[in-house]
Design a protein around this nucleic acid. Structure first.
Lengths: 240, 240
DNA sequence: CGCAAAACATGACATTTGTCATATTTATTG
DNA sequence: CAATAAATATGACAAATGTCATGTTTTGCG
């Protein structure tokens, strides 16, 4: 999966210092930084493209630099489910990349324009072997991710559609929201269908629930500008 | 959470060589083994006890030595969900243990008699820092776990109750099953309620679905002796 | 072995959610 | 700025699942 209308480049060229923004890279010493800078490439993707697809061979370790990325999985009958929305700083394929001959268990799609750092499997592996602190950083990251998905699985297993939607909104408000005169504006474009795919309901159900939330003045707006108007009440709905 | 009717001991005493069975320990050199052996303790738990509870401070890294362990999370209204069944060799709290002052996000319950190796947070951390291969082993393990839960989340989000049940049975057959004249016997005691908690349905629904599977000769038996009679057909049901 | 508890079973009914059909509104793009 | 596609909306109905009540069978244990 090469990015089609996008430029690849040495990371150092297009971005002055990738080591500032990313926790995993921030901890590296001078020597490791020089090595990594040689190996790290940056790629750009736009809507409708794929970063990789379910089943593709996993040859690179990735880091989100800018924009957000959707990780989706699909079932035999064509339905889709969004497992995770990755934000800047998020790592992906930490794991697949260290297994020989493993394939991507899901598809990565950009949500809007994104740029991604990539590191070859080999360089990634050597980084981890030579730098225990980097490995521990990855362990921490994966541990957090694991905790997150387990929480998500719990919600999917136990909560009703409206609670799941409320949880999603609370979560996104915390992770991507910015203050706004009207409330908290979400930092990702999110259609009702996107939301539906994230909480495992039909698009119609997501629309109906959002309509109710709107009537109750918990949220406002649609995909391009989605605003949380009453976070506390959404939060209590989520955990009721 | 101390084990009540159980004995703690230096690992070396009650089990001749913990390094044989566990991938993470198998890769260690002589020196690390000696250090770890000093630090590793073994604890035993029985049904009805807790290894730890949701919210307890996470001070140890754990490895399942014998038996199986249920990781459960519960929601505000008392409903429970089983996030994972750990088997011998499984690691847990790889992650919480490296964060300062973090708490367990779920409860760990023995399913029958189990024995558990424990390593203090400090010793675990030092092991990882000194031994990059161990850290990589943990990364691999966490990566696999992450992949697993994401698959589980997908199933919870997209599949109907009977498909989810079929997936569960296929999964357990692969992971714990042993050949048997009647089919594949599961290696864990599993009531309908246990299954219900694993796939996010009510106990009655689990019972009804199992009754149907039984009529269709896909499975046989109940909790104490659950046998998979037609794995291929269950598998195709799971992914239909 | 017999008793109590746990597990399994089943029906009736309520609730939740999905599906399909059809508008209406809002974005996007040439 | 049209025109075209995407997103939002809503109703009617069907399907899936939960809930509650009650009964039977199996298991564990003194």
């Amino acid at each position: 999966m090469q990015p089609s209308r996008s430029s690849n480049s040495r990371a150092g060229l297009s971005s002055p210092d990738p080591f500032k923004q990313i926790p995993l890279l921030k901890i590296l010493g001078e020597r490791d930084r020089r090595v990594i800078l040689q190996e790290l490439t940056e790629a750009h993707y736009g809507r409708g493209e794929y970063i990789f697809r379910e089943g593709d061979p996993a040859d690179y370790f990735h880091i989100v630099k800018e924009g957000s990325v959707k990780c989706v999985k699909s079932s035999a009958d064509g339905k889709e489910c969004t497992v995770k929305v990755l934000m800047p700083g998020d790592l992906f394929c930490c794991e697949a990349a260290v297994f020989d001959g493993d394939c991507h268990p899901g598809t990565a799609k950009p949500m809007g324009d994104v740029s991604i750092f990539r590191l070859s499997k080999k360089a990634y592996f050597e980084l981890l072997r030579r730098n225990p602190d980097a490995a521990i950083e990855v362990i921490k990251y994966l541990g957090n991710r694991l905790k997150e998905v387990q929480e998500q699985a719990k919600i999917l297993a136990l909560d009703r559609a409206d609670h799941r939607m409320a949880s999603l909104l609370v979560n996104l408000a915390q992770r991507t929201g910015t203050k706004d005169p009207q409330g908290i504006k979400l930092g990702v474009r999110l259609t009702r269908q996107d939301m539906a795919d994230m909480v495992g309901v039909s698009t119609e159900t997501a629309i109906r629930i959002m309509a109710r939330f709107k009537r109750d003045r918990l949220v406002a707006g649609t995909a391009n500008r989605l605003v949380i108007k009453d976070l506390p009440r959404l939060r209590s709905l989520a955990s009721a």
